[in-house]
């Protein structure tokens, strides 16, 4: 036996038919929000990219890249090219160079990440044997006015975040010396 529900399908009255009341009611909602935002009450959105909401501190999401630095300010990166190889979007370009005196020998003369190609997969971070690249800045990439701004070069990428504790990489032990950072 199918259950039946009787629906009250009465016809619309005159006011409902001309729809003006519904329009006014809708406009009232909009106007309420409009004046609330205009008069400075806290809203859900921010004017991006001038203001950005930082990700939560314990967020595990992959955000804008950075190159980690050694105590002396040089990048931990030894230009092994593994990130460039692993990147599925081919957005990393590295040129290697040699330190004449430093026992680590190799460093990136240029290191660029093209954010317009990057798919934020994190393969570069996984591939790196020196724990030199990370995607933990908490900043969301993108929102630039020109393509040039989306190409991050070594100077843009090289920075620290507070409270970082880098793992020891293989070649970096030479820079750090026996017994830790120097």
């Amino acid at each position: 036996m199918i259950s039946v529900r009787k629906v009250n399908n009465r016809p619309l009255n005159f006011l409902e038919r001309i729809y003006l009341v519904e329009i006014a009611r809708g406009l009232a909602v909009t106007a309420r929000h409009f004046f609330a935002n205009l008069l400075g009450r806290r809203s859900l959105t921010v004017p991006y990219p001038e203001r950005r909401i930082p990700a939560a501190g314990n967020s595990a999401s992959r955000t804008r890249h950075r190159l980690k630095a050694r105590p002396d300010g040089s990048p931990r990166c030894v230009a092994c090219f593994l990130c460039q190889t692993a990147c599925p979007a081919r957005c990393i370009a590295i040129e290697a160079a040699e330190y004449p005196g430093n026992p680590v020998e190799k460093y990136p003369a240029s290191f660029s990440v093209d954010l317009s190609r990057c798919v934020m997969c994190g393969m570069c971070v996984e591939a790196c044997p020196e724990d030199a690249i990370a995607m933990d800045t908490g900043e969301l990439p993108g929102g630039a006015a020109s393509r040039q701004e989306l190409r991050l070069d070594k100077e843009d990428l090289l920075r620290r975040v507070p409270g970082e504790t880098p793992a020891r990489g293989a070649a970096n032990r030479l820079a750090e010396g026996p017994g830790g950072e120097r």
Binding site: C80, A170, A171
Partner: peptide, 10 residues
């Protein structure tokens, strides 16, 4: 040595 990242033979 653990030189693979900087070694040309890699």
């Amino acid at each position: 040595p653990l030189d693979c990242p900087i070694c040309d033979q890699a």
